[in-house]
Design a protein around this nucleic acid. Structure first.
Lengths: 232, 232, 232, 232
DNA sequence: AATGAATGAGACTTCATTCAT
DNA sequence: CATGAATGAAGTCTCATTCAT
């Protein structure tokens, strides 16, 4: 590194081109792309390695199995997702309402909403056979995220004008709505652009907690979005 | 066998015709069960015919293809779904708010919410390869259902206390929320029982249209549901 | 069958050429040939089906697995072997000594000593991984054969000129000797021709039970065998 | 590392050379263990190097090939075996009968009868594909051992009470019996303990050459062995 | 109508061997 | 000397589809 070893030459074509971790990640990325384009069942080891530009045997060298590869993919997505909402949830100086918006921002962060990544989530949710893998790998992250929302809702205190509500039930309803927005962002991208999903989510919050959201300005709204016919 | 049972009478012909439709339906039902249990990729022609108690050759006789069988499955589900909300939407004597609730009741009707059927919807949504089939077969029904909701919302008139809202946008948001509830009813049945989904949906409507839902009693609520920890 | 349906035409090339049982047997035969020629590890499903003149998928249709196919092979050999010695052991009018010779004749019967079949036995004995299959499938036959010998030895009564001997121990030693002859018949066929193995076995019996074998003529001896140099 | 440790002295060279031989031997030992536990086909280069605590590249450095490694294994076993019977056969002061017993002692020496080593012999005998390697590497040792026995038998002179016998034929029969005992020691260790195999072998000799073995005491007999049911 | 044996393409996985480091 | 990532051929098994019966 200190030597004048400038990598001007073309990267060595084959052997030892990437470090081990890089190779793993490139295979994970390729798998995400393949699932997004060809579906879970259309994702073959051959296709993945072709996309990654490596060889068939290599995937089995780095991930013992196709299943292990899928686990690594989910683990990667779950880690990324967790990092996003934990980062958003770290600023304790915000009001509870602002913190809920932060979580929405994390959920609809550009990195979260990449179509290929959403496709992976729904591929695993939609495939009965893969659901076990999902629960094993992502279950904990899911629950933690829910509890983060529960904690914020509890810190809101109850609205004197409204009947008391169970915080967990409310949080579950929120997450369900976000899931629905994700799904439609994937299926009908022209009707559900990323920022309009964020908008809808925040409006939903405002409807649920009017006392806390009345004065809040929702930023970066793109009200013109989504006027086109539904089907792409 | 020993009798001279020549099929000159009309009965055998009709019996045959009926039997044919029954066969088709039994294969469709078997496919739904298989997708629910084994996923789309785990659903093989052999498995389907075994569940249906039929034979491989027969399935290929009735549905030229595996793809055609899947199309028939989606067509069946779409027809059933359409019948449910069209029936719910037929009573023009109801108020707009009541008609929205009717649509919710159709969406969360026991027949709609059978876990095996939801599993099929999400199997097709989640699999990029099968999404084309879905759009081809179910797209129209989806759009019609959306427009039925749009029409009702437009008949509500605008709430003078609230900013004007695009009816289509609102309807899209509603459908997205229902989708999210469906997904969670499938994935976390103990947290999202059918009736509590209906409840959440109606509360959501009430939050969106407070002027029209203020006096309405939501019926058949099971407020005790869903208090258990999330994962089963 | 009663019709003048004479099969003068060439057998239909492909489909439905053989009955199910015949097809299974032809695959079993092919497996035996393959193991004999290429060894257990050199026996691939492709090779077996090629020898059998059928297709790859078919073997998996008739035998779920490669392992199941191997089990069927051993079962077939064990059944044949059992039939041989049980047939030989059926004549109760023979003297005990003659019955022991009958068992030897069964062990070294032309059908038992086909080189390809011996090769299969030793392939399974020699492969640590396949030994479990062997025990599971053939263990009982092995034990029954041993006990048949034990019963005959016990019926011999003890020789007053020799120390008493445990019948089971003696039978075990006999079987071990027969095994050794089998092995050498396989490895060094020119030194261990089938009939000279039979001869050696009977001489061994005569040495063990001189009182019962003294007057017995060993038939069909080929004393000239086995004079050539050892290696083929 | 910091010292100017130029390898001018002889020591490092020798240490290296020694280390090289040790490496080879540790790989050979690992191969024997692997064949014994996983069979010939279950023995992969990766498994061997893992057992040996070495690396893939190293094994290919020391033994160009997998086949060369197998040859080295057989060579090692053959050398050890040869050393055993040549040692046993060296004492020319013994009577011929005692020398035959010495050879038996070599054949059933603890070092010869290690289960893992027997497993290797039978692995190669049982695998048609590996039989060539066996013949190429071990054939000579086999023949020499046979001839050693032949020479002793010829030195016995003929028994006036018995018909003349061809010494080579007799020796072949002996070796076959020993092979059978080896096989059963491997497959049914509880019925064929090492010392009872030795016992059986010597009894066999005594039955063949009664005039020479009449007065001989067979030592170290364990008459209680082998009373249990056959299968473990 | 109905059956299920047969085919063969294609998926996953293993493994001997090579070679950059 | 030593390592282990990388390759690709070869093996096992699955499964949609066909077609003789």
């Amino acid at each position: 590194m200190t030597e004048d070893n400038t990598p001007t030459s073309e990267a060595p074509k084959k052997r030892r081109a990437l470090a081990k971790a890089e190779r793993r990640q490139s295979l994970i990325d390729a798998t995400i792309l393949s699932i997004a384009e060809f579906g879970l069942s259309g994702t073959t080891m051959a296709r993945v390695t072709e996309i990654a530009g490596s060889s068939l045997g290599l995937a089995n060298f780095h991930f013992e199995n196709k299943e292990r590869l899928f686990e690594a993919v989910l683990q990667f997505l779950a880690d990324e997702e967790r990092a996003l909402w934990q980062g958003a949830n770290a600023d304790v100086t915000l009001t509870p309402a602002e913190r809920l918006i932060s979580l929405v921002d994390a959920r609809f962060h550009p990195r979260s909403c990449e179509r290929s990544k959403l496709a992976v989530w729904f591929a695993f949710w939609g495939d009965a056979g893969a659901r076990d893998i999902y629960r094993r790998v992502v279950g904990d992250m899911d629950e933690e995220r829910l509890e983060a929302t529960v904690a914020i809702i509890e810190s809101l205190g109850r609205d004197p004008d409204r009947p008391p509500r169970d915080a967990r039930q409310t949080a579950l309803g929120l997450e369900a709505f976000y899931d629905g927005l994700w799904l439609n962002h994937l299926l009908y991208p022209s009707d559900f652009k990323r920022l309009s999903c964020r908008e809808r989510a925040i409006e939903h919050l405002a409807a649920l907690f009017p006392a806390h959201f009345s004065r809040l300005q929702t930023v970066a709204a793109h009200p013109a979005e989504g006027k086109r016919p539904r089907r792409t």
